[in-house]
Simulated assay, not measured.
Amino acid sequence: MTQTSLVELDAAVAECRRCPRLVAWREQVAATRRAAYANETYWGRPVPGFGPPDASLAIVGLAPAAHGGNRTGRMFTGDRSGDVLFQALYDVGLASQPQSKHVGDGLELRGTRITAPVHCAPPANKPTPAERDTCRPWLARELDLLRPTLRAVVVLGAFGWQALLPVLAELRPVPKPAPRFGHGVEVDLGGLRLFGCYHVSQQNTFTGRLTPAMLRDVLARARDAAGLRPGSPRDA
């Protein structure tokens, strides 16, 4: 990876075609479109992370949604999982508004960057282990570029947790055996605090496995660990 900035990295991510199954699926979805979005032009490409380049908090999800990020070009934007996440980020002072419907809607993240271990929308929201591993260098380079300011990471779901730990192990010591995922789990990695949180999937939020209060609690703890103040940019 030769990218020297997140701007360069994001541009390179958006051109990636390394996983044939994911390329075919994301482009098929973009061509056929959902009826509710029939008049929209889908992004239909890998979705890069977004947020300030000096973020002290990262949120790591799973992969873009077929009719969410794959449509809008921005992680979690335009889908129901994003509705839950952005509301919670707003509630704890990490987002400028409680929803995000499209790129250019005015949303700004405060000291926070959102990304994922897989940048293309996968069929049935299930990337394969091989696709996860093929996409890993993008996440590794992203975290490396964030390393000077990054202080905390929230991982949404076990898939993201399992994908992230090998990446972190390349950048800093990780305990062995590796810490296990669980909601509310907090791990000190020597200057970086890792937080586990159930994914904001509809399956979790509709059934009450993950409530807004549970999500806010983890985000607030991570916000504090990252040295962020509610409603204000990251302190230099």
Rank of each mutant, 00 (worst) to 15 (best):
M1R: 10
L6D: 02
E15T: 15
E15H: 12
C16V: 09
L22T: 00
L22G: 00
A24E: 14
R26Q: 10
T32N: 07
T32D: 08
Y37V: 06
N39M: 09
Y42T: 03
W43H: 13
P46F: 00
V47E: 01
G49R: 04
G51Y: 11
P52E: 09
P52H: 04
A58F: 02
A66P: 01
T72E: 06
G73W: 00
R74E: 08
D83A: 09
V84P: 00
L85W: 03
G93E: 01
S96K: 14
S96T: 15
Q97Y: 14
P98K: 12
Q99L: 10
Q99W: 10
Q99R: 13
V118F: 00
H119S: 12
C120L: 13
A124M: 08
N125L: 15
P127A: 10
A130R: 15
E131L: 01
R132H: 09
P148I: 12
P148H: 12
T149H: 12
R151C: 05
R151L: 04
F159M: 14
F159N: 06
G160S: 07
W161Y: 05
L164F: 06
L164E: 04
A169S: 14
P173H: 14
V174E: 04
P175N: 08
P175R: 10
K176I: 11
P177W: 12
G182Y: 04
H183C: 07
G184C: 03
D188C: 05
L189Y: 04
L189K: 11
G190E: 14
G190D: 13
G191P: 05
L192H: 02
C197G: 03
C197A: 15
Q203I: 10
N204F: 11
T205F: 11
T207M: 05
T207R: 12
L210T: 08
P212F: 07
L215P: 00
R216F: 03
D217V: 02
P230K: 14
G231C: 12
P233K: 06
D235A: 15
